[in-house]
Measured scan of single mutants.
Amino acid sequence: CHSECLGNCSQPDDPTKCVACRNFYLDGRCVETCPPPYYHFQDWRCVNFSFCQDLHHKCKNSRRQGCHQYVIHNNKCIPECPSGYTMNSSNLLCTPCLGPCPKVCHLLEGEKTIDSVTSAQELRGCTVINGSLIINIRGGNNLAAELEANLGLIEEISGYLKIRRSYALVSLSFFRKLRLIRGETLEIGNYSFYALDNQNLRQLWDWSKHNLTITQGKLFFHYNPKLCLSEIHKMEEVSGTKGRQERNDIALKTNGDQASCENELLKFSYIRTSFDKILLRWEPYWPPDFRDLLGFMLFYKEAPYQNVTEFDGQDACGSNSWTVVDIDPPLRSNDPKSQNHPGWLMRGLKPWTQYAIFVKTLVTFSDERRTYGAKSDIIYVQTDATNPSVPLDPISVSNSSSQIILKWKPPSDPNGNITHYLVFWERQAEDSELFELDYCLKGLKLPSRTWSPPFESEDSQKHNQSEYEDSAGECCSCPKTDSQILKELEESSFRKTFEDYLHNVVFVPRKT
């Protein structure tokens, strides 16, 4: 048989008469490798580009789960590009990614509803959504962080984005990388972005840091009482949809009607710091009717980097990364020049730590249904340095008659930039024990000054392991946590139920 035959053949030295091919099969003959313009397919066939392209389009058009959109890589027609490569849609070739590779997620039936953290986790790592997304989240724990972890990498949506009755959302900033909504599939009414009845939605994105392009379709905003109209108009300008909307697409009466839409800028007039305090004062603000001013709200939190936005980490279910302080308005003076500047002394802060701070007014709604208010920009203030805590785990070892090696770990709280350490030492008198000992005694162990690591005695271990207080009263049991108490109650309830079950099964009433 021919060298490319495997198993047997019907005619000697003829690659077209093989029972099976050793390498690849091409047009009725066995070959060692697939010549151009053919590609290896499933490690035994040679196919042309049209064959591989037909497989790709067949799966793409069917949208069946589990099928493969075949691509070409290293002269092979394979189910998908290997790690580190992405497909070129024009020629199906796998090309190296520039940075992290995109991950295209194809949605069944063309859309997916995100109504819980669990459903959001199914899209973790996706960068391109081939379909439409509907966000409908009523509640949950730590929602802002969970949504950002699972949806934060999405850069492109081919269909539309719909935010509907998501009472738990305060902001859409968890879509931190969303840059493009194509609108290839539109919501009824030709809408590519749809926001309806979101009672706590206050911000779409921080438009000073976020760009969003909507290729096709219109915007729809109705019944978002805490979303200011200025935020919607800003989205029109940034996304390129200005002029597409009709009169009733953006409701003037049901958007922002319960919001404090600040239209003035508060400026800080005085800032002073110490290692654990920050004193702030800002310019006074009074609405047209000074009785509408209820006070100020001061927001602050630790910020290692200057990239904080107002609604980071917030949701309507209680999660809030900001510390909020309510401040009463100052006494009002008739003389504008003698107006008191409101302020606040922030206490209990960490030394040498940068804080993000902003302040906003708290006002009631005027009778004319106009909203007044003022808010400052987010500023960054760093507390002063102070003395560091003591170095940890000092170790001293003498390696000769004239040297001592000293080692330690950095302090747990540096409280500033540590530039150097101060080492103090003092000579001590020799131990009298060394002169009084009889060095001729056998088995004498000389006193040693070398360091030995501390260890816990058996008594201390027994005390720590004991669940009861000892007789001397030195140790006591740790208080039980809520989960331990709940577990004990469940076990007790189970024992009672099981005992009742045994009584009912074992003891049967005697027939009379």
Rank of each mutant, 00 (worst) to 15 (best):
L204T: 13
D292P: 13
L294K: 13
G140K: 15
S260N: 02
N307V: 07
L349G: 01
I188C: 06
L212C: 04
P388H: 01
Q354V: 05
P287M: 05
L212F: 04
I134F: 13
G313Q: 11
D393H: 08
V128L: 02
Q203D: 04
I181F: 01
L151W: 10
E111R: 09
I188R: 13
D335P: 13
R281T: 08
C317L: 06
V170A: 06
G373K: 04
F268L: 06
R369L: 08
T185R: 08
L280I: 06
K112A: 08
A303N: 06
D315T: 13
G152Q: 15
I214S: 06
F193T: 02
G183C: 00
K277S: 08
F174K: 00
P329A: 11
Q199E: 14
K209G: 10
E236M: 05
S274K: 12
L147F: 10
L147T: 03
S192F: 00
E184D: 07
I357N: 00
R138A: 12
R176V: 10
E236F: 03
F221P: 00
L406P: 01
S173T: 05
D315P: 15
I137L: 07
K242T: 06
A259G: 05
R281M: 12
L133R: 00
Y223V: 11
F275S: 14
P391Y: 01
W286C: 13
V363A: 13
T323I: 01
L180S: 07
N334A: 12
M346F: 12
N142S: 07
P351K: 04
E283N: 14
G313R: 11
F311S: 06
S319P: 13
P342A: 12
N211Q: 10
I154L: 12
I114W: 02
Y372A: 02
T309P: 04
L107Q: 03
L143N: 06
L204I: 14
C228N: 02
S166P: 02
W322Q: 02
D257V: 07
P411D: 01
I114H: 00
L392T: 07
T241R: 11
T371F: 05
F358L: 02
P284Q: 13
L107N: 11
L108E: 14
S166K: 00
E237V: 02
P410F: 06
P288I: 09
L279I: 11
Y305K: 01
I327L: 04
W344T: 12
V308G: 01
S192D: 00
I214Q: 05
D377A: 05
A195M: 09
M346H: 02
L172N: 01
P351N: 03
L169T: 05
Y300W: 04
A385R: 08
D377Q: 06
D249S: 10
Y191P: 06
H222L: 15
S239G: 05
F311Y: 15
K350W: 15
A144V: 15
G217Q: 03
F221R: 00
D312P: 15
T113I: 08
L147M: 14
I214T: 12
G217R: 02
I378M: 01
S239W: 03
S192V: 05
P304T: 13
Y305L: 07
M346N: 01
C261T: 02
E187R: 11
T254F: 10
S396I: 00
L252A: 08
P304N: 01
R370G: 10
N248L: 11
L108M: 11
G256I: 02
N200V: 09
L294A: 08
I271M: 06
E237F: 14
K177G: 04
V324T: 12
G373T: 14
D289Y: 05
K209R: 09
C105K: 02
E236A: 12
A168T: 12
D367P: 06
E109Q: 12
C105A: 01
S132Y: 01
L186Q: 04
T213S: 11
A145S: 07
E146R: 15
N248P: 12
S319F: 07
Q306V: 11
K301G: 04
K253V: 10
M235Y: 15
F221L: 13
K253E: 11
N150F: 11
K407M: 14
K277G: 11
F220R: 05
N320P: 03
L172R: 00
F193D: 01
L266R: 00
T185M: 05
G217L: 01
W207H: 06
F290P: 13
E262F: 06
K409W: 11
Q199R: 11
D335Y: 03
R202I: 00
G140T: 05
F365A: 01
Y223W: 15
S401E: 11
F296Q: 14
F174E: 01
G243S: 06
I114G: 00
N248Q: 04
V363P: 08
C261M: 01
F311L: 05
K177H: 08
S400C: 12
D257C: 14
I157S: 00
K226N: 10
S173D: 11
L169K: 00
V170W: 09
L279Q: 04
Q382K: 08
K103Q: 11
W344Q: 05
G295H: 03
R291W: 14
N141Y: 13
L147I: 05
Q354N: 07
L219M: 07
S333K: 14
H106Y: 10
E156A: 12
I250A: 14
D206N: 05
P410V: 15
S239M: 14
Q339W: 08
S338H: 09
I378V: 14
S396D: 15
Q382M: 09
F175E: 01
F193S: 00
N387T: 10
K350F: 12
P411H: 01
L280K: 00
K253W: 10
T254Q: 03
V104E: 15
Y380A: 02
G373Y: 10
G125V: 13
C228V: 02
N340W: 15
L196W: 12
